[in-house]
Nucleic acid binder design. Structure first.
Lengths: 222, 222
DNA sequence: ATACAGGATCCTGTATACAGAAAGTACTAA
DNA sequence: TTAGTACTTTCTGTATACAGGATCCTGTAT
């Protein structure tokens, strides 16, 4: 007898509100500090406050929204110190991840990563910086999704989501770095392709160190 | 002119529900797999479903509760694989934390840690294993609270909360290890007391490696 | 007995109502 | 003009109602 896992039930309004709000915040449609009054946001989404409140609670846990009892929720604002903190943790977790998955990544997964690399290349050629950042972030998140350690996946995803949302805002001079960042992804893929844990970890470590180095000058300007 | 930060407003019913449920789950009053129907849990707490739902959403993010659309929430069940995953991350994050805080920990903070150590000692003498685990977990969480990296604090707290809740259940033979675990805390404090980052990180690394080693035999029995 | 169908029951997801806190506004006094 | 105060509006926190899905129970057919 064939056993299939039942398909997940229809997405709830709350889930959709969560996805849509998350997207809007990441893409900068709501800016850091913007207030998010429940009634009006719910009206925008065409739902009531109840499902929205759950979505807001989740976004607060993701670090995208700040909640204070009795006050309006607002889009989180990050300082450069926060970004540095995120990078410290990425520096710790992402090379570890790259090293681990090198031993069990599949060819299909490698192909999907190559596709993302391709998207990045095109984004650079078309000077579409939003697309670049989006696919860059996606590259790191997708690498994490391969790991069997679910908590690690969660952590890396959270760090990247928080980080890239702000990277977009901070780095006006991003364009010149995009090509470099892109080129650093190649040795990571290469090491994974050859199932070399050490090299994959090392390549990721170098990449994130460089992200940090590239962010520093921007921080100086402030 | 003297400026004081305004005191936080009264805790909401939702916050209290969150704290109370978290406590009940960690202390084993609800067991892994137990269903948590909103209506009855709300009735137990003497509140309505609305504030409870927010508490449940938060506990789900903490990993203490599992939510599936349309189904009853239930207390999360962890496998030994999950525990191993938590330990891998603690292995990465906690030595890093110990190393960082060594350079700026205050004497007051060290004193508070010493007090926790004292509680642990007493718990062992009185064979109060629940108290021991509680204060052991608290020791690690309190070390994280000192770090200025807020995300790191969050991650370590989450890992410890999830870990210790299950440790209690898994380790019937805990008593013989409690004294050893306790003794491993001493060099950590000692290194912090002398503001030696390297040694603090190393002591924490050894400690967590040993936790892992002690858990392995238990895993074999299963 | 075992498997299945139908119905009753329980429970979640959602909308809505309302009290009291927060925020905004306009008016008064210096 | 500025500071302060009373009033109004807005908004959150909470309770509650209800529809439809999930679950459980019962009885029937194999």
């Amino acid at each position: 007898m064939v056993v299939l896992t039942k398909l997940q039930q229809t997405e709830t309004l709350s889930d959709r509100a969560y996805r849509e709000l998350k997207r809007a915040i990441i893409q900068g449609e709501f800016l850091p500090g913007d207030p998010l009054p429940e009634e009006s946001v719910a009206a925008m989404l065409g739902i009531s406050r109840t499902p929205l409140r759950k979505a807001i609670t989740r976004l607060a846990y993701d670090g995208l929204i700040v909640l204070e009892t009795g006050k309006k929720a607002r889009v989180a604002e990050y300082s450069l110190v926060d970004l540095d903190h995120f990078l410290q943790l990425r520096q710790l977790l992402e090379p570890f991840n790259a090293q681990q998955i090198a031993s069990y990544i599949t060819d299909e997964q490698l192909d999907e990563l190559e596709q993302l690399i391709q998207v990045q290349k095109e984004a650079i050629e078309q000077h579409d910086m939003y697309q670049f950042i989006e696919s860059d972030s996606q590259f790191h998140i997708q690498l994490a999704e391969i790991n069997r350690n679910h908590k690690l996946r969660e952590f890396i995803e959270q760090l990247n989501t928080n980080f890239y949302r702000n990277y977009l805002i901070l780095s006006g001079t991003l364009e010149e770095y995009a090509a470099i960042a892109f080129s650093e992804h190649l040795p990571i893929i290469e090491a994974l392709r050859h199932r070399q844990p050490e090299q994959a970890g090392e390549a990721m470590k170098i990449h994130i160190q460089n992200i940090e180095a590239r962010l520093k000058p921007v921080a100086q300007e402030e």
